[in-house]
Computed example of a mutant assay.
Amino acid sequence: MAFELGTGILRGDFAPGTTLPREAELMERFGVSRTVLREALRTLTSKGLIGSRPKVGTRVRAREMWNMLDTDVLEWYSRVAPPLQFALKLQEMREMVEPFAAALAARNHQSATLAMLTDAHRAMAAAQNVDEWVRADLRFHLGVLTACSNELLIPLGTLIERTLEAQLRLNAKRAEVYNAALAEHTAVYDAIVARDEAGARRAMAGLLGVTRERIET
């Protein structure tokens, strides 16, 4: 119920500032009980999508109030937003964060986090199909964030994990071969291992440049 109503709001079925239909109408529309409906409304309220006031009803909040950094909201939005628009917004976010994360990983990685990154890189090199490649690719990018040794960046990986995996899969399928970007990932990995901060930043920026080309093509 929260998913159905939430995606409806994100899609524009219920415009910001408008009042949602009465409970009875929503219960009939979605085929749910009052208990299920009210739980869904509480969920959407906690995510910033709606707000309730006495004698006013439940209204859709302004877009800038929506918690787009909620894992559910982000995934719901990825399902209803124009695909190219969403992919480019996610890409912009990655371009702002990942090159500097790679530099931090080069500076701050420890034996345990480097081992995780090494395992992910080896899995990418050994991948025999798209699924194996995507799983390893996701582990690699999340591993870079972990290797930063910055506890504020690690949750970012958890936040975008599901949508990032979908983007990585699409990029792999658009490439000439699924592992076409192995050399670019290796450049990032080698720079991190060598503790070359500037090199890691450049290599990650280059890798994301390839990703952007595939998105825009």
Results as ranks from 00 to 15, higher is better:
residue 164 L to M: 13
residue 156 L to R: 09
residue 142 L to G: 00
residue 159 L to D: 00
residue 168 L to M: 00
residue 158 T to Y: 13
residue 143 G to A: 02
residue 143 G to R: 03
residue 144 V to C: 02
residue 157 G to H: 01
residue 158 T to K: 12
residue 158 T to H: 13
residue 171 N to D: 07
residue 152 L to H: 12
residue 163 T to Y: 00
residue 157 G to L: 01
residue 166 A to G: 10
residue 148 C to T: 15
residue 141 H to F: 13
residue 141 H to A: 07
residue 152 L to I: 06
residue 153 L to N: 05
residue 139 R to A: 15
residue 137 D to L: 10
residue 154 I to C: 10
residue 142 L to V: 03
residue 170 L to E: 15
residue 137 D to M: 06
residue 154 I to E: 12
residue 142 L to P: 03
residue 138 L to R: 08
residue 169 R to Y: 06
residue 151 E to H: 13
residue 142 L to S: 01
residue 156 L to S: 11
residue 171 N to T: 12
residue 145 L to P: 03
residue 141 H to V: 10
residue 151 E to D: 14
residue 152 L to S: 08
residue 143 G to D: 08
residue 141 H to K: 10
residue 161 E to T: 08
residue 142 L to H: 01
residue 161 E to W: 10
residue 147 A to V: 04
residue 151 E to Q: 13
residue 159 L to N: 02
residue 165 E to F: 06
residue 152 L to A: 11
residue 150 N to C: 09
residue 165 E to N: 05
residue 164 L to R: 13
residue 164 L to G: 07
residue 141 H to T: 13
residue 148 C to E: 04
residue 140 F to I: 04
residue 147 A to Q: 06
residue 141 H to N: 10
residue 150 N to E: 12
residue 165 E to L: 07
residue 154 I to V: 15
residue 137 D to H: 15
residue 171 N to W: 12
residue 140 F to K: 02
residue 137 D to K: 11
residue 162 R to N: 09
residue 155 P to E: 03
residue 158 T to N: 13
residue 167 Q to S: 11
residue 145 L to S: 03
residue 157 G to A: 01
residue 149 S to N: 15
residue 141 H to P: 10
residue 163 T to S: 05
residue 165 E to V: 07
residue 163 T to C: 01
residue 161 E to S: 13
residue 146 T to D: 12
